[in-house]
């Protein structure tokens, strides 16, 4: 008889009202009004990450909630002065979301080879049965992107570009646009890690 492990509790969609439990002020509750979960304070170069999650018909998801996880500017997780974690709600009108964070440093992969600087993103929304996991990389790091062990695990080389954000003009800090396409042409790479 095989060894029995406990079975992971099955995931279910966060639903359209996910904000009540995760970003209550956004839902309209009169609590935790001061929270700015999309702003991740800490030492380092400030950057802004913006985008939209698009469905398979090219329509924006206006109920999505995104979570971000990243290293600090020295490539450390859980550093004492940087949480590395944030949350953003897509706009109920346009689907635009935004994070204000710092440029992450280099984190070594399992074998010690450096990964290109990136942030990890999780997407929760109505119609998404189990959260989707993707990564946002920065376009300037061309050599590091070419050597990144996770990008190189994407066999279809043409799909790797779906994980690289685009620098956009304007803004008081460097701003990057990252469109996430759930389905169809240019479908974003999602991970099972």
């Amino acid at each position: 008889m095989p060894i029995e492990y406990l079975k992971e509790t099955p995931s279910q969609t966060g639903g359209p009202y996910v904000h009540i439990g995760t970003m209550p002020a956004f839902a309209g509750l009169e609590i935790r009004q001061e929270e700015q979960q999309h702003v991740i304070p800490g030492p380092g170069e400030r950057v802004r990450l913006v985008g939209v999650v698009w469905d398979g018909s090219g329509h924006p998801l206006r109920d999505a909630m995104l979570e971000l996880w990243q290293a600090d500017s020295a490539g450390r997780h859980n550093a004492p002065d940087f949480s590395g974690w944030g949350r953003a709600a897509a706009s109920s009108e346009t689907g635009e979301w935004e994070f204000d964070t710092i440029r992450p440093g280099v984190v070594p992969w399992r074998d010690g080879t450096p990964q290109a600087p990136h942030v990890s993103l999780l997407i929760f929304a109505r119609g998404i049965n189990i959260h989707l996991h993707t990564r946002l990389y920065f376009p300037e790091d061309e050599a590091a992107l070419a050597a990144d062990p996770v990008l190189r695990a994407v066999e279809q080389t043409g799909r790797r570009a779906t994980l690289v954000a685009r620098r956009v003009e304007g803004g008081d800090v460097p701003t990057y646009r990252f469109d996430i396409r759930l389905q169809g042409e240019g479908e974003t790479v999602f991970f099972d890690m």
Binding site: V107, G127, R159, Q183, F190, M193
Partner: peptide, 16 residues
Amino acid sequence: LRSPRFALVSLEPGPG
């Protein structure tokens, strides 16, 4: 319309 059509890319989790 909210489900990816490509397979997920599977990797062992890394330090992050």
